[in-house]
Amino acid sequence: MNLWSYVIRRLLYTIPIILGVCLIIFAIFNLSGYDPAQTLLGKHATAKQIMEVRKELGLEKPLVQQYFDIVKSAFTLDFGRSWATKQNILDMIKEGAVPSLTVTIPAFLISTITAILISILVAFNRGKFIDKYLVVKFVGMMSIPSLAYILFFQWFFAYKLGWFEISGYEHGFPDFIPYTILPVIIMVVLSIGPDVRYFRTVILDDIYQDYVRTARAKGLSETVVLLKHVLKNSLIPIITYVVIQIPFLILGALLIESFFSIPGLGGITVKAVFDNDFPVIKAMTVLFAISYIVFTLITDILYTVVDPRVRLK
């Protein structure tokens, strides 16, 4: 099978997935018996008011129509307006993307590179003290809830020591830097544990393969075996793991943004949960899902370009 027919088949496969995602979102928001009109108007609304709001929200339309409205919004990204701010949700998303990226991109780069370096170090010394020590250390770090890290770091480094801004944000480079350093540090601390654990397993999986034994039998040194043979093969799962995180970069870090008052998409989402802002929650769910699907698609296609074996399946 050639590359193009694979790409087309893979593209077609996303259609039922998008329809499925919309079906789940539809089931949660439109079929569960939850009435957004009630949330919007409060307990003392009259039946007539509720009717009017339901009409405005399109809840009086036939169910099939309501379902296709969600599907349509997945393609047009037209989500209507927020209840809390009355803003157009698409504009909110556009505004929120940049502040999110100023936190997540540096954090993502630092943590991924550090994690890969540590995993190589650990793989060199597998079974030795440093390997066991680091593994236990990272498992320990992962056993502390993220909220506790955020609270403690903000209190200790920003409030007590006064090294960083406690919260807030300023638009434009380089004005945002003082506000993003601490959030970036926290994100790196939070993601380095899971990253190292995953990369280590991937590298160790490869170390026991036959081709590695062959390489060793040829008399190659451990350094050459690890860096030239093993790492090359481990790169594929590592790249997949890394690429799939990209949509989450745009969407930001939910709790961190909310906590440090960074006006990114994560912060917007958390605020919507606080405000019971129904259209924004729904829009964010659709947006998160669609970007996830798009990036999975890109990863899969990249995969087949890099590794021709995938196409044969």
Binding site: P16, I17, L19, G20, V21, L23, I24, I25, I28, F29, F248, L251, L254, T269, V273, I281, K282, M284, T285, F288, A289, Y292, I293, T296
Partner: peptide, 15 residues
């Protein structure tokens, strides 16, 4: 596959 496309935390919020 459809459900997994919705990030877990968003699904949790929604539900």
């Amino acid at each position: 596959t459809s459900q997994a496309s919705i990030p877990g935390i968003m699904l949790l919020f929604a539900i």
